[in-house]
Design a protein around this nucleic acid. Structure first.
Length: 244
DNA sequence: CGCCAGGGCCTCA
DNA sequence: TGAGGCCATGGC
């Protein structure tokens, strides 16, 4: 099933099209713009993507976006403020995103990290993917998915994001085949070896998986209306499972 | 009421 | 290194 990974993308893209991730908060509202495809992200946008990626950890984007909008509304969405304001006060603002004490600490860890970079976001950009990834992963509160999201959507690095939806969708599609998801790095490498090296494609792919995972490939999946059912082991009632 | 959400860290075997 | 506990609100 060498071409399944790419086929899966093409089917989803054919049905849903561009997803214009990562959304940015504008006037307190979450907006999916397509203009970013023609330009690099600004430093402010990258910080917002970083903060949003932390706030949405195991949390619906709606709740995370609300907290992000409040942070922005309070003029706290900048490195200096996040670094200087007390964690308990940040926690109060982002309460609606859940895990607010942890996330406040994570935002402060992020701000501390960025404050220690003389070259700012440009310094990360110029490190290249691998060094930038290691660098982000060294920050407390930034794990693999959060790091890859930041790298892919903030810096346009070619790295694939694996989240719980990805694992769910892949594990279902691959049921009964010789290959199925393993751990994070395994899935990431497996996918990247089978896709064209195209950043926009990677960005859309992950966003499309999230869209499908939210609306159709739920824990209790709606296979009857799923555009992938024709190529999905789960929809065909298979049960065997092996790992990559 | 229970389940779920665009994870990550820590602990312990 | 892998499983399990913990963090927590809001929407359905």
């Amino acid at each position: 099933m060498d071409k399944t990974i790419y086929t899966l993308y093409k089917v989803l893209f054919g049905v849903y099209g561009h997803q214009n991730w990562w959304p940015i908060i504008e006037n307190g509202r979450c907006r999916y713009l397509d203009d970013y495809r023609k330009r690099a992200r600004t430093d402010d946008e990258i910080l917002e993507i970083m903060a949003g990626a932390v706030l949405t950890q195991n949390t619906s984007w709606e709740n995370a976006a609300g907290a992000l909008a409040k942070l922005k509304g309070e003029a706290l969405l900048n490195i200096e403020s996040l670094d200087s304001v007390r964690a308990v006060d940040i926690a109060k603002i982002i309460k609606g995103s859940g895990y607010y004490n942890q996330k406040a600490a994570k935002l402060k860890a992020l701000a501390g990290f960025l404050k220690g970079l003389p070259g700012g976001m440009l310094e990360i950009r110029e490190m290249g993917l691998e060094a930038a990834r290691e660098c982000l992963l060294s920050v407390w509160g930034i794990g693999k998915e959060t790091a890859d999201s930041i790298l892919l959507y903030g810096f346009y690095f070619l790295t694939f994001v694996i989240d719980s939806y990805t694992v769910r969708v892949f594990s279902r599609v691959w049921i009964g085949e010789n290959e199925a998801p393993g751990d994070y790095e395994k899935i990431r490498c497996y996918v990247m070896e089978r896709l064209p090296r195209n950043t926009l494609l990677y960005q859309d792919y992950h966003a499309l998986i999230v869209l499908l995972g939210k609306n159709i490939c739920r824990k209790k999946p709606l296979c009857e209306i799923c555009p992938l059912s024709f190529m999905c082991g789960y929809a065909h009632g298979r049960t065997a499972l092996r790992t990559i």
